[in-house]
Design a protein around this nucleic acid. Structure first.
Length: 303
DNA sequence: CAGTGTCAAGGTGGA
DNA sequence: TCCACCTTGACACTG
């Protein structure tokens, strides 16, 4: 099991998510921003390596406007050396990497324009992982999409669209349950029609389920991941006390995380902590996981 | 220079 | 039919 956190690090004083307004787009602005974002990504990975946080989600903001028509600059070629360098570091240290395009990627939208932009965005995400030279265990996770007043028709549309995607996308794409529309069971049903691996989100599952226990779903979900996909990924989060249902916690709750590990002990997976204080909670989670020597790969860092 | 309204992109659901 | 909300950091303008 590897433990990780998404996208940004609040300790080291840089962000890999620098961006700018579309209205101020220039190729030079893009070059400067991407250069800084990549430099920061490299710093975060060095930090993560030092503390044995070996699972990391790369921000979608790495290359701003990458899938927008305004961006005709060949950033893939211009930065290929830097991507290669970072990718080598990732491979050498056996990091697990994921990416998570946001809400605008909707493969099952009835709107062809939305579909077209969604695919362009997926192409961008896959290009980043390809440029890093990562194998098919580096995943791009999306949600199933909208319901559009007809869930079964929307699932059917997802399946049909999925089958038309390029292999380079198919090899990396996984679907995650959300908290309002598509449960883990829905995702498993879609897997049966497509073969797409399913990524479980504990917090979403607590808000939308059909009465199944999370632990009981681990085994069926495990089978959706082929050998080349690596071990399953799981998103872990919990409710922020006193906030609207669905609000992610500011900080990890040690008891809850310990309980989560205990109930899932039989399964092997990588855990992404979607908790707002990022690496701080991830470090605490790692400490908790190390209470049980069966759980975490790698030696503790030397003092 | 701190505070704050806004930002490429979509969809849901309550009023 | 309209609007708030999701989720959220970072930009860029305002005073």
């Amino acid at each position: 099991m590897r433990i990780g956190y998404p996208c940004i690090n609040r300790t080291i004083g840089c962000t890999p998510s620098r961006t700018f307004r579309l209205s101020s787009y220039t190729d030079n602005r893009l070059m400067d921003t991407v250069r800084e974002n990549l430099a920061c990504l490299a710093k975060i990975l060095a930090y993560n390596e030092k503390y044995h946080l070996l699972f990391f989600r790369v921000t979608s903001d790495l290359v701003p406007f990458a899938s927008h028509p305004v961006c005709t600059f060949r950033w893939q070629e211009y930065f290929s050396g830097e991507f290669e360098r970072i990718g080598k570091y990732i491979r050498n240290h056996r990091f697990r990497i994921s990416m998570h395009p946001d809400q605008f990627v909707l493969l099952n939208s009835p709107d062809e324009g939305v579909l077209r932009r969604s695919i362009a965005e997926l192409v961008y995400h896959v290009q980043v992982l390809d440029l890093l030279g990562l194998d098919d265990s580096a995943k791009v996770q999306i949600h199933v999409g909208g319901v559009y007043n007809n869930k079964s028709a929307s699932i059917e549309r997802f399946v049909k669209r999925y089958e038309l995607l390029d292999t380079s996308i198919l090899n990396r794409l996984v679907i995650e349950n959300d908290e309002r529309l598509y449960s883990i069971s829905d995702c498993l049903a879609i897997y049966k029609q497509t073969g797409i691996p399913v990524i479980m989100d504990t917090f979403h599952h607590s808000l939308l389920n059909n009465g199944e226990k999370f632990a009981a779903l681990l085994q069926p979900v495990r089978q959706t991941w082929k050998a080349a996909d690596g071990i399953p990924m799981v998103d872990y989060s919990l409710q922020e006390p006193g906030k609207r249902a669905g609000t992610h916690a500011e900080h990890i709750n040690a008891d809850d995380f310990r309980h989560f590990l205990a109930t899932t002990l039989a399964a092997d997976f990588d855990v992404m902590l979607e908790i707002k204080d990022k690496e701080r909670s991830a470090l605490e989670a790692l400490g908790i996981a190390r209470e049980d020597p069966r759980l975490v790969t790698g030696d503790p860092p030397q003092a």
